[in-house]
């Protein structure tokens, strides 16, 4: 007791209190410092890898886009904005934009609508639900490499199954991958199939998240299927739908594998999407400067598209 009194009285006297608080702040400071060091140690591996394989490359891309390079990839000369001027004047950029935009228009809405329809139809199945879910999400796990090879055979002009089935139905064979009119459509058909799995799974789990009671009470109020879809499903699904649209557009602009395997950008550049054009310029023609210029433009286009969607489309999205 007396000891405690002593301490208390001492504390009132000022000086020792300062020492105690000083000690406490010192150890607190030390703890904070230690936590800072530890936190950055935890971040270090990721930061280090990002720095080398992401941040440095972006800066290097800017640098390369202002230079011409020799076939070994060494910088040959500073050319200012010549790469950009050439990209625009040669029509390469606009052709790439046109093909990529067409490709996105052909694949994104079709794949999402189809997936939405299938997700809605399988949502309330009483039996066989798992089987259908397995079937419709299957393309998700198949890689672009193997899928493209399989489809290349299906598209084969004489031995391919697609033309054979068309023949059975009395339709003349279609020059799927070999005619400039059909090539982009064919690649899009395959891409819709490939993206179906992802879209189906995401939209299915979005539908799962809508409480059944809402439908029950709407039914009691006499709402039909279409009305329920319009006033319950659409608003509540809109965040998921927004996500799917965003991801689909970005991935359409990044498509490469199926193009490279099915058509190699041809015939007559009719399927030369953006990333294929970057690949061709950099790793076939070995013009790293020109390739980097295109890559930077792709970055800007994707950034712009994402910005537009967040700015204009997301306002219509209903978050709970």
């Amino acid at each position: 007791m007396s000891e405690l009194d002593n301490q208390l009285s001492l504390a009132i006297h000022g000086k020792p209190t300062a020492a105690v608080t000083y000690n406490r702040t010192a150890s607190l400071k030390k703890m904070r410092f230690r936590e800072n060091v530890l936190a950055y140690t935890f971040l270090a591996p990721s930061l280090f890898l990002f720095a080398i394989f992401l941040f440095y490359p972006i800066l290097k891309s800017v640098y390369l886009s202002l230079h011409s390079t020799d076939p070994t990839g060494q910088v040959a000369a500073y050319v200012g904005l010549d790469n950009f001027k050439e990209l625009f004047s040669s029509g390469l950029f606009w052709n790439g934009m046109k093909v990529t935009a067409m490709f996105s228009l052909l694949t994104v809405p079709t794949s999402i609508l189809l997936a939405l329809l299938l997700a809605a139809l399988t949502h309330n199945l009483r039996w066989g639900k798992r089987g259908f879910q397995f079937a419709f999400s299957l393309p998700l796990v198949l890689a672009v490499g193997t899928s493209s090879i399989i489809w290349k055979f299906l598209f084969h002009p004489s031995l391919g199954m697609l033309n054979y089935f068309l023949g059975l139905a009395g339709v003349a064979p279609i020059p799927w991958l070999v005619s400039p009119e059909w090539a982009l459509l064919s690649v899009s058909l395959m891409t819709v199939w490939m993206n179906l799995g992802f879209n189906y799974i995401i939209l299915s789990s979005g539908l799962q998240g809508i409480p059944d009671e809402l439908y029950e009470s709407a039914k009691i109020d006499g709402a039909g299927a279409v009305t329920m879809f319009r006033i319950i499903t659409m608003p509540l699904l809109s965040p998921t739908l927004f996500f799917v649209v965003l991801v689909s557009i970005i991935s359409a602009f990044q498509s490469f594998g199926q193009i490279n395997i099915l058509t190699s950008g041809g015939p007559m550049d009719s399927t030369s999407v953006f990333v294929f054009s970057i690949f061709q310029e950099s790793f076939i023609n070995f013009r790293f400067g020109a390739g980097s210029t295109q890559a930077l433009m792709l970055f800007l286009v994707i950034l712009l598209l994402t910005y537009i969607q967040f700015k204009w489309v997301e306002r219509k999205v209903h978050y709970q």
């Binding site: 992401l54 490359p57 792709l298 994707i302």
Partner: peptide, 8 residues
């Protein structure tokens, strides 16, 4: 997009 960093 990863393609931007691909060449470097």
């Amino acid at each position: 997009p990863w393609e931007v960093a691909m060449i470097p």
